[in-house]
Design a protein around this nucleic acid. Structure first.
Length: 276
DNA sequence: CGCCAGGCGGGGG
DNA sequence: CCCCCGCCTGGC
C-alpha cells in the first residue's frame, strides 16, 4: 500500500470526475479503481491521506498525483476572481494528474466529438484487445497498450473497439510514434507552443485535443483547452466570445490557466446539468 | 425516425 | 484564412 499526503483531505470525485482521465471508476464504497503505470490500484481516502492499495510504488504515484505542485497557493491567487472563487469552493480537491503522454494522445483522439461514457468504453475495449492483462482484487484489468501493440493489432481488429471513424486516427498515431515520425521524447522537451505544433501534425489531433494533451499528458498549465462547454461557460460567466477566449484566459488567469479551466469546467458542467 | 455528443479533416469560397 | 459539411456510434 502507498500513502500519499496531499496536505488536506483529498476528494477523489474532484480528481477523477473533472474530465481529465478515463480509466478511474467509482466503486460502491466510494473508492476508485484505476489503471496507470502498469498497475491496477484502489484509491481511497483515509483521514487526510490518499491511500492506494495494490502497489508499493510510492515514487510513481506521488508523481502521478503531482504532490509537488502548490495547489493551495494557486487557489489563493485564483480566488481574487469572484467567479473562480465560487468554482474552487465547489471543486476544491481538483488536481491535474500527470498521465502518460501516449495514453493521453490516444485517449483524447478518441474523445473528439464524443461523450465521456462512450469514450471510457472505447478505451477499455482498446486496452482489452491489446493491453496486458493484470489482476487486482480478484478481477482482471488491462494496461494501456503500447504503440507497438496497437500497430500489431491492425485496423481490422481496432474496428472492434467501436471507435468509429477514429480507429484509423488511433492506428495512424501509433504508427507515427512507433516509426519515429512523432518523437514523444523530443516533444516533452519542447516549449509549449512548439510542442503544440508537433502534436497538431498527428491526424486526429486538432487544437482542442492538442491542448488537452499538453495539459493532462505534459503538465503544461499554461494552456486553456477550449471545447464547447468552455465556450458556453466563458460566454455566460465572463461574457467573452469564443474567438477571444485564448487571449482572455492568458490575461485573466495567468500561467496556471489550465488549472483554472478545470475549476470552471467542473463547476459549470454540474451546474448546467442541474438546469436541464 | 432525427438529432446530437467535451472536434476534426477535407474541400470550397 | 475561414466556414461548412460529413462523420462512427450509442442514446434519447
Amino acid at each position: 500500500m502507498v500513502e500519499i499526503d496531499l496536505g488536506f483531505a483529498p476528494n477523489l470525485e474532484h480528481i477523477f470526475e473533472c474530465g481529465q482521465c478515463f480509466r478511474w471508476n467509482m466503486q460502491p464504497d466510494g473508492s476508485y479503481i484505476g489503471v496507470a503505470g502498469g498497475e491496477a490500484v484502489r484509491a481511497s481516502v483515509c483521514g487526510s491521506k490518499l491511500t492506494l492499495d495494490g502497489t508499493d510504488n510510492t515514487e510513481f504515484w506521488s508523481n502521478y498525483f503531482d504532490t509537488a505542485f502548490d495547489y493551495e497557493g494557486a487557489k489563493t491567487k485564483f480566488s481574487k476572481d469572484k467567479i473562480l472563487k465560487k468554482c474552487i469552493e465547489y471543486g476544491y480537491g481538483i488536481r491535474i494528474l500527470r498521465q502518460d503522454l501516449f495514453e493521453t494522445i490516444i485517449s483524447f483522439i478518441i474523445s473528439a466529438n464524443n461523450n465521456i461514457p462512450r469514450i471510457k468504453k472505447i478505451i477499455e475495449n482498446l486496452c482489452r484487445i491489446c493491453g496486458e492483462r493484470i489482476e487486482f482484487d480478484g478481477n482482471e484489468y488491462y494496461t494501456f497498450p503500447t504503440a507497438e501493440a496497437i500497430v500489431n493489432a491492425g485496423l481490422e481488429k481496432l474496428s472492434t473497439i467501436h471507435a468509429g471513424y477514429r480507429d484509423k486516427y488511433i492506428l495512424g498515431a501509433a504508427q507515427a510514434v512507433l516509426n519515429g515520425d512523432v518523437n514523444l521524447n523530443e516533444i516533452v522537451a519542447l516549449p509549449t507552443d512548439a510542442a503544440r505544433r508537433e502534436l497538431l501534425k498527428i491526424i486526429g489531433v486538432g487544437p482542442k485535443v492538442a491542448d488537452c494533451v499538453l495539459l493532462f499528458g505534459m503538465s503544461r498549465f499554461d494552456v486553456f483547452p477550449s471545447d464547447v462547454w468552455i465556450k458556453r461557460i466563458l460566454d455566460e460567466a465572463y461574457n467573452v466570445p469564443p474567438k477571444e477566449i485564448c487571449e482572455f484566459a492568458e490575461n485573466k488567469f495567468g500561467k496556471y490557466r489550465g488549472l483554472a479551466q478545470q475549476y470552471l469546467f467542473y463547476y459549470y458542467r454540474d451546474n448546467m446539468k442541474k438546469l436541464a
